[in-house]
């Protein structure tokens, strides 16, 4: 177990991608980073660059236009990586399931590791989802968490 694997689990960096969500879950993801919930104390940092990221947080359902962007970003993240689908509509399409431009949940395009329920998902639930993802990640890199 090297230093890189350890730090990947101890301080994972996050890439937040918004498909065609309603913003509800996006502002909750952002709220996780601000003083009340403050996930930065666990070493989680929000990154704009996919090549720096370990965990991808996706909000919103996939539509026909963002599908390509989503796949593109996913492929740019170095392995091992985790994908968290935040919110009902990122998990299944949710309230938008019968809209004509919607393909459905994020798992229609890329593999998803953790689904966070809720519309909008509460910050507590999102943090819970991240913790679950980290447990999976530590198994994947072979580090005891």
């Amino acid at each position: 177990m090297g230093i890189i694997q350890t730090s990947q689990v101890k301080s994972p960096w996050i890439l937040h991608f918004c498909n065609s969500s309603c913003n509800g879950c996006d502002i909750e993801v952002l709220a996780c980073l601000t003083p009340l919930y403050d996930v930065e104390r666990f070493g989680l940092v929000n990154m704009g660059n996919p090549k720096h990221a370990d965990v991808m947080v996706v909000t919103g359902p996939v539509n026909y236009r963002t599908a390509r962007v989503l796949k593109n970003l996913y492929n740019q993240i170095p392995d091992p990586k985790m994908v968290i689908a935040v919110g009902a509509c990122a998990s299944t399409g949710g309230v938008f399931h019968n809209c004509y431009n919607i393909m459905g949940g994020v798992d229609k395009v890329i593999p998803v590791d953790v689904y966070v329920p809720g519309c909008a998902a509460r910050p507590e639930a999102i943090i819970d989802g991240v913790v679950l993802a980290l447990q999976k990640l530590s198994k994947a890199v072979g580090v005891a968490k």
Binding site: S20, N63, T66, F96, Y100, N101, I102
Partner: peptide, 10 residues
């Protein structure tokens, strides 16, 4: 067009 869902039709 990245965020279009088609809510008006729905």
């Amino acid at each position: 067009g990245y965020g279009h869902r088609g809510i008006e039709k729905a």
